[in-house]
């Protein structure tokens, strides 16, 4: 297995879960990032959305102050494909009502049938997409 990091993965995941739990316990809201982002663009209830997303972006900036270099991720595709990917993520999460956090974490945590269905579908489709892009199956 390649670069497998289960311990930091589980700890990081637990922190994501803690953030999602506190978002509900303190603010009564679901920590679904596409929902928060989309609502901001629709100018619904903007204040807390801006604050939450500012916190997300502040995380690596604070980590940089603590000596962890700011990340500039290696992207797997050209700018055009990156734009197509972003467009599909925007349309898809909006149409399907959530992403990996809203459906995949928060929705599964409350055993929502919509979220379980959406997560199963986007996982299978993403696996198929990577298989086609990397190994050329069916293409």
């Amino acid at each position: 297995m390649h670069n497998f990091t289960p311990v930091s993965g589980f700890i990081g995941g637990a922190l994501i879960g803690l953030a999602a739990a506190l978002t509900m316990l303190l603010t009564g809201r679901v920590a679904g990032i596409s929902g928060i982002f989309g609502g901001l663009l629709r100018s619904e209830d903007r204040g807390w959305r801006i604050a939450f997303l500012a916190g997300l972006i502040a995380a690596p900036l604070l980590a940089a102050l603590a000596g962890h270099p700011l990340l500039k991720p290696a992207m797997p595709a050209s700018l055009v494909v990156t734009a197509i990917g972003g467009l599909l993520v925007g349309i898809g999460t909006c149409m399907g009502g959530g992403c990996t956090s809203g459906h995949g974490v928060c929705g599964i945590a409350r055993l929502s049938s919509r979220s379980l269905t959406a997560t199963a579908i986007f996982m299978v489709v993403a696996v198929a997409t990577v298989a086609i892009m990397r190994h050329g199956f069916g293409g």
Binding site: L56, I84, M95, H103, R114, A118
Partner: peptide, 25 residues
């Protein structure tokens, strides 16, 4: 719900970014 999950799955599989990590980055 189904169509949205399919489109999101394609975009996520193409780039490996979903909304949370994209915004952190």
């Amino acid at each position: 719900l189904v169509a949205g999950a399919v489109l999101f799955g394609i975009g996520w599989g193409l780039i490996g970014l979903c909304p949370g990590p994209a915004l952190v980055n």
